[in-house]
Amino acid sequence: MGSIPRKLTAALLGAAAMGGALLPAATAQAAPASPESAMAAVRAAGFSIDVTKSVVDITNRLYDIISNSIAHNQNRSGFVNGIMEGSFYDAGQRYNVMVTKQNHPYTANLHNIVYDAIVHSGYPDFRVIVFESGTFTNRGDGGHINWAFRGWFTREGMTVHFRKPGAAARSAVPAETGSAGTASVQGASGAGVTIHLDNGANGFQVANAISNINEDNRGKFVAKAVDAAFEVSGGRYNVVMMNLSQGYHERLTGKKLYANVRYGHVNYGLWISEAGQFTNNGDGGWINWGMRGWFDRDGKTVNFRRP
């Protein structure tokens, strides 16, 4: 695999301690990451994104994901799920998303494609498709190292039938009113954060807070990151953080923030929401997931409620 030099895209001017994590002082604000810098870093390493359709253009965000994933040598399943989640939120939570290994055997009959690209990244090449409906059949091996998808669908084995979200589902997604763009910060313990959705959750402040956590223990890092996200977003929303290389099922409502959080070789998803359900289908423990807010837990399924 090639390597990309780690990059710092936000200046930290000061910090104050809160809840066991380092939080930015009033003057420490993360600036939006430069799309050009991520693209230049990826291309300098010999990698690229070949776009064939971009009615909804998420290419700059993908460059940021690729740049940070390769710089941190992340595991492949976390990389694939990170692209899948990032693409879903960057496209406005209004389309289905499929990420599949390009040289894998598959049959795709997808309709109203709004984004289609091949990602060349040092991992195997992956195709990213954003679309309204259709059917996709994986004729090769499964697992998140080979494919990942989300949206509105029913699944029969290795065949997935996607449907167009109805008007109610689309209108339930609020317009992004918070900070737009990305914040990728290299912290003392190797942590980095990329914001893909911020609906008034102080996204850049959350990115600064998590990236400044100085913690060598992975489980303690997750616990501190969850606490930081909860506090910085105002202490009025639910927070869950999940290792993206594990299986999970997210059914959250009233989402305020989604971010990719990188710690060492592990890629986490971070959600801040009003309510809903989240299920961990993989391994447990703080090294893989954590949550804070108002909820009832049944094994690895957590039901969040509004405070």
Rank of each mutant, 00 (worst) to 15 (best):
S233M: 03
L270I: 08
N214M: 12
V114N: 03
I83C: 03
A117W: 00
A71C: 06
T154R: 14
G143Y: 08
A169F: 10
A172F: 11
F153V: 14
R262V: 05
F149C: 09
N280G: 02
G181P: 02
L197P: 03
A229Y: 00
T9P: 09
Q29Y: 09
V206Q: 01
M1Q: 13
I70C: 12
V97Y: 05
A16E: 14
A30W: 02
N73D: 15
G247A: 06
A259Q: 08
F126W: 06
A28C: 09
G269N: 03
A28H: 05
A25I: 13
V240D: 01
S34A: 10
G178M: 04
I4Q: 00
A31G: 12
S48V: 04
A30M: 10
G142Q: 15
V130C: 09
A188F: 12
G2E: 09
F136W: 13
A108H: 01
V97W: 02
F88K: 06
H144N: 05
A275N: 15
D125H: 13
N208V: 09
G157N: 09
A172W: 08
A28P: 07
G20R: 07
F126L: 06
A33D: 03
M242V: 05
Q93F: 11
G234V: 08
H104I: 13
E85N: 13
L22V: 15
R170Y: 13
G142K: 14
I118V: 10
G187V: 03
V55G: 07
D125Y: 07
M18I: 12
A201F: 02
A26S: 11
V232R: 04
G190H: 02
L110A: 05
A275E: 12
A201V: 02
N73P: 12
E132N: 04
F131D: 05
A44S: 08
V206R: 00
V302R: 06
I4C: 00
P24S: 10
R170F: 15
N112Y: 05
G285A: 04
M1G: 12
G19C: 14
A168S: 15
D125R: 03
P5F: 07
G92L: 02
A207I: 06
A172I: 06
A209F: 07
D198Y: 02
T182A: 14
